[in-house]
């Protein structure tokens, strides 16, 4: 399985990438939504994108909207991973097309539980 990790913090990208790699994912990362779109435009098709909200250049919500407007990327599951925890923000993200929402701070176990809910744990891990 493949995942695209989008966060302007290199530290957070390393943390999320570490969790996903341990679960068997092949991971690429991007520093903002625009870079994330570049990866997708290369034809690299992830099963999952984890997306920070507050980023320079192109924020997470703009990325989600851009992905949703392209039918070619419809199969990709999008999970916001962000410190934005107000209910209205969560509703906005889900309305824009995100599938799931993970609030920072989180533990590796909580992250794994979210992936299990989404049916995105690699089979050998889920067993």
């Amino acid at each position: 399985m493949r995942a695209l990790v989008i966060d302007d913090s290199r530290a957070m990208r390393r943390i999320v990438t570490g969790i996903l790699t341990d679960l068997g994912y092949e991971v690429r990362d991007a520093g903002h939504g625009g870079e994330g779109l570049e990866v997708l435009n290369e034809g690299w098709a992830p099963d999952l994108a984890t997306i920070d909200w507050n980023m320079p250049v192109m924020d997470g919500l703009q990325f989600v909207s851009a992905v949703r407007s392209n039918p070619a990327w419809r199969r990709m599951t999008m999970m916001m991973v962000t410190s934005e925890s107000e209910h209205t923000q969560i509703v906005r993200a889900l309305a824009a097309g995100a599938h799931e929402y993970m609030i920072k701070p989180f533990t590796a176990d909580a992250f794994r539980d979210k992936l299990a809910l989404l049916g995105l744990l690699p089979q050998e891990v889920a067993l």
Binding site: S9, R10, A11, M12, N54, T82, S83, E84, S85, E86, T88, I103, K104, P105
Partner: peptide
């Protein structure tokens, strides 16, 4: 980057405890 991200996460949780809506 790393020290800033810690402030971001702590700040996001503090914001959630305050009356909103607020921007971070």
């Amino acid at each position: 980057d790393a020290f800033g991200e810690i402030a971001n996460v702590v700040g996001g949780s503090v914001k959630a405890a305050l009356p909103g809506p607020s921007a971070l």
